[in-house]
Computed example of a mutant assay.
Amino acid sequence: MSEAANSADPELDTEVMEALKAATNPVRWQVLQWLREPEKHFPVQPEITDPHTVGVCVSHIQARAGLAQSTVSAYMAILERAGLVRSTRVGKWTHYRRDEERIAALLGRIGQDLGPLA
């Protein structure tokens, strides 16, 4: 077995694989892209929430995606379990934002694991 295979962290590998699996769905991928610049894709109500610190209401995501609320909620739960988004409750509404630190760490890990040999 190679040195790289011996040094791999199975728990980290599982986290990376779960994140990749969550992002491969076209709608979830699109939502992640929309949440990168929420003010371009969703109604912004700064008097209620900041889309970068609190997030975007799931009802706005649902309206933009054109899917049933239950489907969007299930998709967002998958993205949250994978560590790609975080949720915040504001009253009876759930808001989602990207977890930029986690995404950066996952991208770094992917680059480390799949980067060039030289």
Rank of each mutant, 00 (worst) to 15 (best):
Y75W: 14
E11K: 04
V31Y: 03
D50F: 02
A19M: 02
D9R: 15
N6Q: 10
L12F: 02
R28A: 10
D50Q: 00
P26N: 05
N25D: 07
Q45D: 14
L117N: 02
G66N: 09
Q69D: 11
D113R: 14
D113N: 13
R89S: 06
F42I: 05
A23C: 13
G91E: 02
L117R: 15
K21T: 06
R86S: 04
A63L: 09
A104M: 06
A5Q: 15
T71P: 13
S73N: 11
G55I: 10
A105N: 09
Q69M: 09
L117V: 10
D9S: 13
Q33V: 15
R36A: 08
N25R: 06
Y96W: 11
D99T: 00
T49V: 15
A19R: 01
L114Y: 14
S59E: 12
H52N: 11
V72N: 00
I103F: 05
A5M: 15
I61D: 09
D9Y: 08
A19L: 03
R102I: 10
Q45S: 07
S2T: 08
V44K: 04
V54S: 02
E18F: 08
K92V: 11
Y75V: 00
Q112T: 10
H41W: 09
T71L: 11
R36V: 06
G115H: 05
L107P: 07
M1Y: 01
D99L: 05
V31E: 02
E80W: 03
Q33C: 13
M1I: 07
N6E: 14
A65R: 01
L20E: 07
V72R: 03
I48T: 05
